[in-house]
Amino acid sequence: MQPLSLQKRLPNITTSIILENINLTNLWKECNLQNRKAQAQFYSYFSKKMFAVCMRYSHTTLEAEDILQNGFVKIFTKHNTYDGKGSLEGWMKRIMINTAIEVYRANQRKLTESIDDNENIQIESHLVADQMGYKDLLKLVQHLPLGYRTVFNLYAIEGYTHKEIAEMLRITEGSSKSQLSRARQWLQTKISKQAY
C-alpha cells in the first residue's frame, strides 16, 4: 500500500508517518471485519476530506451529507473491492465521486436549467478583493447547475479527460466540452465581479 497523504500533514516526522501507515492498515483491516469501533475511528479520520469532496459536487449541504453517508456505507460494505493497488484514500474518493455521479444521473432532467447571471451570491471573504478564499470558490461551484458543476469538477479538479467524463456521465464528448466551457465562463464572470 502506498503511503497515504499523511505525509503532507507531518512532513518532517517520517517515523510517525510509517507508524500511521501501519496503524491505518490495521485500522482498515479491523473495519473490514465490521469492527464498529474501528469504523468510527476510520470515519473520523477521513470524513472531513471526503465531505469536502462531497460538498463541491453538491448544490446544498444536505445533498453533500447524503453522498457522504452513502459513500461511507459503500466503503465499509464493499471493502473487498479495494484491491490494494493505489492509495486507499484515492479509492475512497472515487467512491464518493461515483456516488455523486449517481445523483447526477438521477437528476439529468434538471441539467438544462439556466444559470441566473444576476443571482446574488454572498461572498464572505472581504480580506483581499482579488483573492477568493476556499469558501467563496466552493460557493461559486455549488451554484453552478448540476451538469456544469459535475463536468467542471471532473475535468478541472479531478483531471479526467473529456472521453472519460463522457463515459462516466453517459454523455457525448462534445457535450462534456461545451458544458465545461460554459462552467468556466460563468465562474470567470463571477470572479471578475468580485474585483471590488
Binding site: K8, G133, Y134, L138, I157, R184, L187, Q188
Partner: peptide, 14 residues
C-alpha cells in the same frame, strides 16, 4: 481558472 480552483480544493476539509 482551473488551477485556482484546484489549489483551493486540494486539501480542503469540511
Amino acid at each position: 481558472l482551473d488551477k485556482l480552483f484546484q489549489e483551493a480544493f486540494k486539501e480542503a476539509e469540511e
